[in-house]
Design a protein around this nucleic acid. Structure first.
Length: 320
DNA sequence: ACCTGTCAAGTCTGG
DNA sequence: CCAGACTTGACAGGT
């Protein structure tokens, strides 16, 4: 069993390296020279890509092969004020540089378009905006020159008072997506609406990969056990030739069990790994914690102690 | 340098 | 039926 760990978007160690700098729509609208304002957006995007590359170098130095890009690399992308703006041509070289670094170092990268991108929606304009957002994410990965191994993770979406109908609508909307977008997608169980079991059913019907979020499952389930679901979840990855991927985070507090804590409890992940590892040779684990890569480094230290104390009880587990 | 309020999006809940 | 909560990082404007 080989496990790779990764983190989301920003580092607490690398200073002044935000990949999500932006400009508000209000500020943009205030600028009288629109061309100059657009050049400024492009400079911010270039800076975000530059910082992304800095983070990837930091990752390489620490042998971190897994990383999720910020979805806010291009400020105001998709905003109605900028409908006529194509940010890609001036950014192609910067995107390509990021993609080449990813490939040279055999990294696995992804996006997670935010929860406003919903394919279960009954509203036409929301669906259109969602598809446009997914198209932009696919275009960024294409601009990086990355294969379809680089994917976008989203949730199924809302239930609108009728989960079955919402799920049917979701599946039919996914089936109608352009192939170049669909082959970049994977779906994750969420913490309020669609459980791991339901998300798995959708993924099986669509023959698309499923990301299991352990924390979401803990707060949104109907008594199903991960060990029972896992073999089928892992099987959704077979056609991709990628290791299955899971998300791990710890509850913020008893009062806010859905929130993400600063760090990840080592026993939490040790328990999950004990459950999952007997069924899989490889696993990629995305750590979702407020302390970002800091939480990742702490977790690796804690797991090392676990292993030394033989509490992990899995001598075959290796990680970098 | 630091603090507080605001901003984006879509869904869901409460009134 | 509409206002507010939810979430998140960063901006904007104040001291």
């Amino acid at each position: 069993m080989i496990i790779r760990f990764g983190y989301v978007a920003m580092s607490v160690e690398v200073k002044n390296a935000s990949p999500s700098k932006t400009m508000t729509a209000t500020q943009f609208a205030k600028l009288t020279d629109r061309e100059a304002a657009i050049r400024k957006l492009e400079r911010i995007a270039a800076e975000n890509l530059h910082n992304t590359l800095r983070l990837l170098r930091h990752n390489k130095a620490h042998d971190i092969k897994l990383y999720r890009f910020s979805s806010k690399l291009i400020p105001l992308a998709g905003h109605e004020l900028l409908a006529d703006w194509d940010p890609f041509p001036p950014l192609l070289a910067a995107f390509r540089e990021v993609g080449e670094y990813v490939q040279e170092n055999s990294m696995r990268v992804s996006f997670h378009p935010d929860h406003f991108t919903v394919l279960s929606t009954p509203r036409e304009e929301v669906l259109a905006n969602s598809i446009a957002d997914l198209d932009r994410h696919a275009r960024m990965l294409e601009a990086m020159g990355l294969s379809k191994a680089a994917k976008c993770n989203i949730h199924i979406g809302g239930s609108y008072g009728n989960k079955d109908k919402a799920l049917t609508r979701f599946i039919s909307n996914v089936k109608e997506l352009p192939v170049r977008i669909r082959e970049r997608l994977m779906f994750e169980n969420d913490d309020k609406t669609f459980t791991a079991k339901e998300t798995l059913q959708a993924c099986q019907e669509l023959d698309m990969p499923m990301v299991l979020d352990i924390h979401h499952h803990a707060v949104n389930n109907e008594g199903e056990r991960i060990e029972d679901l896992w073999p089928a979840i892992a099987a959704t990855w077979k056609q991709t030739a990628l290791p299955p991927k899971i998300h791990v985070s710890s509850p913020k507090s008893e009062k806010d069990p859905r929130g993400h804590a600063d760090y990840v409890q080592a026993d939490e992940i040790a328990r999950a790994l004990r459950t999952i590892t007997p069924h899989s040779q490889e696993l990629d684990v995305m750590i979702e914690a407020k302390q970002k890569d800091g939480a990742l480094f702490k977790l690796m230290d804690d797991l090392r102690e676990y292993k030394e104390a033989e509490r992990l009880n899995q001598a075959a587990i290796q990680w970098s």
